[in-house]
Amino acid sequence: MLNRDKLTTNASLLGGLGLALIGTTCCALPILLVALGMGSAVAAMVSALPWLVTVSQYKHFTFTLTAIILAYSFWRLARMTACEAGTQNTLKWQRRALWLSTAILILSMVTAYLLLPLSLWLDS
């Protein structure tokens, strides 16, 4: 028999991780590559994956949706307990995946929103 709570929690974790990775790919990775002098890699990436331009235009929505899904995942994991034998290890890995997704989101947001103002401030 399938555990509905476990499936919902896993789906929200995967959704949060997927959106965090999309946020990294659309917004943080191109900025980082250009800052490292690899602008041609960004041009090749955009020509191979044209949907990145559309996603980067709506990065506010992407980051907000990712944060909402991650907050929901935190709420789901806080409510779960390790009642059954063997679920403690599953909860441990779910928490690790959630914190990894949160770290990716924070790194992406810092890169997308603070890297340019910070570099302009340091240049002046």
Rank of each mutant, 00 (worst) to 15 (best):
L91S: 01
A85K: 12
K92D: 07
S73K: 04
M80A: 11
L100W: 00
A97V: 07
Q88P: 09
G86A: 05
C83R: 15
Q88A: 12
I68H: 00
T90E: 13
T87N: 09
I68Y: 00
L70I: 05
Y72L: 13
N89C: 14
A85C: 11
W75N: 08
W93V: 08
L70C: 02
L98M: 05
F74I: 00
W75R: 06
W75A: 07
A78T: 00
W75Q: 06
T81G: 01
L70K: 03
N89D: 14
A71H: 05
A82D: 10
M80I: 13
I69C: 06
T90S: 11
L98Y: 00
W99Y: 06
M80K: 14
T87H: 07
T102C: 01
W93H: 10
T87D: 14
Q94E: 11
M80P: 02
K92F: 11
A97I: 10
S73G: 03
L98P: 02
T87C: 07
A71Y: 08
A85H: 10
S73E: 05
R76T: 07
L70N: 08
N89F: 14
Y72K: 08
I69L: 03
I69G: 02
A82L: 02
W93Q: 14
T87P: 04
M80W: 15
A82E: 09
R96A: 09
F74M: 12
L91I: 15
G86W: 05
G86Y: 04
A85S: 12
I69E: 06
L100R: 00
T90N: 09
S73D: 06
F74C: 08
W75M: 08
K92G: 04
A97F: 00
T81W: 10
A97E: 04
T90I: 15
I68Q: 04
L100H: 04
Q88N: 13
T81S: 09
R96T: 08
L77K: 03
S101F: 05
W93C: 06
S101A: 13
Y72W: 13
R95G: 08
C83Y: 13
A85T: 15
